[in-house]
């Protein structure tokens, strides 16, 4: 049972961040297409937002590993 839980953990932890990172990437591509001269600035914003979102996914992963031994 624990193994199933741990297997599910990563999958569940990344669902929302996956949606979010898709949105961030899509919007970044869209705004670069609209205003190519702002590409540098948009890329910075994209990397930043991606880092914030990524932290959430990694949090689930790392907490899972840290908790795994203590169940």
């Amino acid at each position: 049972m624990e193994f199933i839980g741990f297997g599910l953990l990563y999958g569940l932890a990344v669902t929302a961040p996956a949606l979010a990172i898709g949105m961030v990437g899509g919007k970044a591509a869209e705004s670069t297409a609209r205003q190519p001269e702002m590409a540098g600035r948009i890329f910075t914003v994209f990397i930043l937002s991606a880092a914030f979102v990524e932290a959430l996914a990694l949090l689930g992963f790392v907490l899972g590993i840290l908790v795994q031994g203590k169940l």
Binding site: A51, F52, E54, A55, L58, L59, F61, V62
Partner: peptide, 9 residues
């Protein structure tokens, strides 16, 4: 936690 989780993972 953001920095730690990124490097650890």
């Amino acid at each position: 936690v953001r920095l730690f989780a990124n490097m650890y993972a």
